[in-house]
Design a protein around this nucleic acid. Structure first.
Lengths: 233, 233
DNA sequence: CGAGCGCTTGACCGGCGTCAACACCCGTGG
DNA sequence: CCACGGGTGTTGACGCCGGTCAAGCGCTCG
């Protein structure tokens, strides 16, 4: 069954050949012959902030390429605590794991307004066996996901509260405007860094006081990076 | 260039058809036709405890299937601290990332005496394009590696010191003897759980005092699980 | 303009880190 | 066979970072 939320998120069917971010994504170097292998529609979907895109353990029909916005991957531990294992940004793939098991290993929730395209599993499977270009791309996406997961553990969940918050500020820099960075609701940041929301708030305040960051809005979501050095140790 | 350590670790060339753990590994369901596609030798290697198998960033000639023993994957953060991101056990693949980039993303170090087989990248690449069975297996190994990475973060690096040590005890259970579990040098355990070695030691002592664990040797490496419930919360 | 939610700040407390002493295992050499 | 020494694990005392609890503030949206 197709959840209602997906129906209501439907914005149309994509023409991937003319996709604006095609150079970042799975279909980056497909040729005309490869495109002719696509027999199911690629849907263009969008979700408001806080919307669940898929849940942990859910049966997967397809995977998603993130076109715009940010998505958190959430795991619930056996004793019920929630942990954010990663944040995905444009160009990343949501739900790669479904290729192997047809189930999602974590919950995906929109952190901002989000736009994605859903690619049916059958399309990925037929392309990956028949197009060496797709095969290679897919491998690179797996490798990137694994590296991101390890980075998240090694860089953001290690050291003092100050180091973690500073590390997140650097990781969440805007690729187009390297002087600005994005934060999230304080309790989400806590679930990312294994800190309490009060501690996150205190450390951000301290970084602003020390001149490392300066707020760009009144909601505490966007900050200017004033002194990169102060964030790096 | 081939490092000297590899030369000295060489034990022979494998006959994968008769491998004792074939059902766990990449070659699990290859048929005779698939095997005929293997044109480079699969080497059988072994390493003593504490030996480095490969280093972070090193150029990769092949990847490894772990046959016996345990291996830690170590990352060094930009400011020089060392973090253990995962522990691999028999059946796991070392260096999957080399398939995409021909470089290793982390350092691999033997935690015990270890035996592995090295499969040249060319063999994997030709099999994965020509054998749908291998293609599927590879996908499953990627998925497993990613899930392990996320598990490690969500389960072992979250909560109190007690919960982390207990979680590691459960994760490191012997698959054949579910009542026994393996620990490591206390500072390695600290690097896995983001705790200091003294804290690890204290928590283990507390678990023994409470009757959850009982030591099986005098070096503090193997413990009997006496009360699973006490470890689970 | 008031209600409510999320962010910040303060005071206090507890868990983990730090520093140090000690116990134990094991290999080496007398 | 035992004496010695280094390496590793354990335990204790103490201090600090981050958690807890609570109050206050400032947006945002009815």
């Amino acid at each position: 069954m197709i959840p209602i939320k997906i129906e209501s998120a439907w914005k149309g069917t994509s023409d991937c050949r003319s996709c604006g971010i095609r150079d970042m994504v799975l279909f980056a170097d497909l040729n005309e012959q490869d495109f002719s292998l696509i027999h199911s529609p690629i849907d263009d979907l969008s979700f408001p902030a806080d919307q669940v895109i898929y849940t942990e353990g859910e049966h997967a029909l397809g995977l998603f390429t993130l076109r715009k916005g940010m998505v958190k991957l959430v795991r619930t531990t056996s004793d019920g605590r929630e942990r954010i294992v990663r944040v995905l940004r444009p160009g990343d793939v949501l739900g790669l794991e479904a290729l192997a098991t047809a189930h999602f290993d974590s919950e995906a929730v929109a952190l901002t307004e989000v736009s994605v395209c859903r690619i049916p599993l059958s399309v990925i499977h037929s392309l990956s066996s028949n197009s060496p270009r797709m095969h290679m791309r897919l491998m690179q996406k797996w490798q990137q996901a694994l590296k991101d997961a390890d980075d998240w553990l090694a860089e953001l969940n290690f050291g003092t509260a100050r180091q973690r918050v500073a590390g997140l500020a650097l990781k969440m820099r805007d690729p187009d405007q390297p002087k600005t960075t994005s934060f999230f609701a304080r309790d989400d940041m806590g679930a990312m860094l294994d800190l309490k929301l009060e501690t996150v708030s205190r450390e951000i305040s301290a970084l602003v006081r020390d001149g490392a960051l300066a707020p760009l809005d009144k909601q505490g979501r966007r900050y200017e990076i004033r002194n990169e050095r102060l964030l790096m140790d």
